[in-house]
């Protein structure tokens, strides 16, 4: 974020278009480079959440699985806030 972006934000103005271009490009290239359609990504996101939910209680609202790209490397980034371990699991390890 630049000084101009901050001033624009304070004044409730639109951000300068170069930042918008940068953000949009980063997103579209992450998809282009991985060759994943939005539907496939969505399906994958759903399945990842289901797998993780077997082990820990996660905040389904806050959870995000997205593609990020840097230096021509694309990464699948999952950010899943954990509420607490599932009670059933922690008790079973005590046995």
């Amino acid at each position: 974020m630049t000084l101009r972006d901050i001033i624009n934000k304070l004044l409730g103005r639109q951000q300068a278009s170069a930042s918008t271009a940068r953000e949009r490009l980063q997103l579209v290239l992450a998809h282009d480079r991985s060759d994943l359609s939005p539907e496939l990504l969505d399906q994958m996101r759903q399945e990842i959440l289901e797998v993780v939910a077997k082990y820990v209680e996660i905040d389904m609202e806050e959870g995000a699985v997205s593609l990020e790209t840097e230096d021509r490397m694309t990464a699948l980034v999952a950010n899943l806030p954990i509420k607490r371990p599932l009670p059933s699991l922690s008790s079973s390890t005590d046995d």
Partner: peptide
């Protein structure tokens, strides 16, 4: 005036 991608923006991307 930040209305065009900079040289660094493009080379980074």
């Amino acid at each position: 005036s930040q209305e065009m991608l900079s040289v660094d923006d493009v080379t980074d991307i």
